[in-house]
């Protein structure tokens, strides 16, 4: 309590969203990399449709009147400033939130924020071929990782830092569920009794690589791993940075620090929502595939949304 620096609610809000948008930019880049490398195998634009469905962007995309081609979808998610799920918008929003926090960030951080946002904004003017996609996405991921590194190395560990990490962790949890769900959204239709063929091993390997978890997965599960193990790894592993569980634990750790170090007690509603989310992750369904997996991911997403809402009530929008 003695360490409390009396952070304004508005700054807590900006820090939280700066973290969320930074993570969103990076997650989107990873998602596009997966899709691109998977689509390259299939040689078909069909592979790009699921992204639109996972983000419920099918209508928004068709409003732009462009044919559903790989390049158009990729552009939509990379460089369309009017798409609320684009890398370019995420980077801009990240910077705008950082701007209102500037006096509380290290000068090194703001510099890197500007450089990252500038490099992403340059995409809008760039003509890019599909063959350049993975390179562009890797650059975005690296830019984001660099920024996270600078933040980590230079930011004072005050309440601002805690909210920044909290936002980033929640977004990571949410985006990781979407990354996995990309092959399972189709189970959304309840009338569909026949489960389509599950994604093959190659697809899971691509996914693991994009989540920077492929080699760790090999070490942990050695031979005979099946797709359900990969799903379990990406959702429940406690040590994989991008796993849903790891991200949720990181978020809970920030709440604990806010409480213990800064006297910013989360309160009943936040604690309840966090507990529900953790319990959900502790108790995955027996069958981590098909419809049951999709439903599980959906439930996790709902719990994350609930938690974000009560966080807003508690910290960001005081009466």
């Amino acid at each position: 309590m003695g360490d409390a620096l009396m952070l304004l609610s508005r700054f807590a809000d900006s820090a939280f969203w700066m973290g969320r948008y930074l993570e969103r930019a990076e997650s989107l880049a990873r998602l596009l990399m997966v899709t691109e490398s998977f689509a390259a195998d299939q040689e078909s634009d069909e592979a790009w449709a699921p992204i639109l469905q996972v983000f419920a962007d099918t209508d928004a995309f068709s409003e732009r009147g462009k044919p559903l081609t790989a390049l158009n979808v990729a552009r939509f998610y990379l460089a369309d400033p009017n798409n609320s799920n684009s890398v370019i918008l995420a980077a801009t929003m990240m910077k705008e939130n950082a701007r209102s926090l500037r006096h509380l960030l290290s000068t090194e951080s703001w510099r890197q924020v500007s450089l990252f946002q500038k490099s992403v904004a340059a995409l809008q003017k760039r003509r890019f071929a599909l063959s350049k996609m993975s390179e562009i996405c890797a650059d975005i991921r690296d830019g984001s990782c660099t920024l996270r590194g600078v933040l980590d190395a230079t930011c004072y560990r005050d309440e601002v830092w805690r909210f920044l990490q909290l936002g980033a962790a929640l977004e990571r949890a949410d985006q990781s569920t979407r990354l996995i769900d990309i092959k399972y959204f189709r189970f959304d239709r309840d009338d569909d009794d026949d489960e389509p063929a599950p994604p093959d091993v190659a697809w899971w390997n691509t996914l693991l690589r994009s989540a920077s978890g492929y080699h760790a997965f090999q070490r942990r599960y050695s031979f005979n791993a099946d797709p359900a193990d990969a799903a379990r790894f990406l959702i429940c592993d406690k040590h994989l940075p991008l796993s849903v569980t790891n991200a949720v634990e990181a978020a809970c750790e920030q709440l604990a620090r806010l409480d213990e170090d800064f006297g910013a007690r989360p309160g009943a509603a936040v604690s309840r929502a966090a507990k529900a989310l953790r319990e959900r992750l502790d108790a995955p369904p027996a069958r981590l595939s098909g419809r049951s997996l999709h439903r599980y991911l959906d439930q996790i997403q709902q719990e994350i949304i609930t938690l974000a809402n009560v966080l807003d009530d508690r910290y960001f929008s005081p009466a």
Partner: peptide, 9 residues
């Protein structure tokens, strides 16, 4: 007062 995460200060 200012509105902080720990109430009005």
């Amino acid at each position: 007062f200012m509105k902080t995460i720990s109430g009005l200060e």
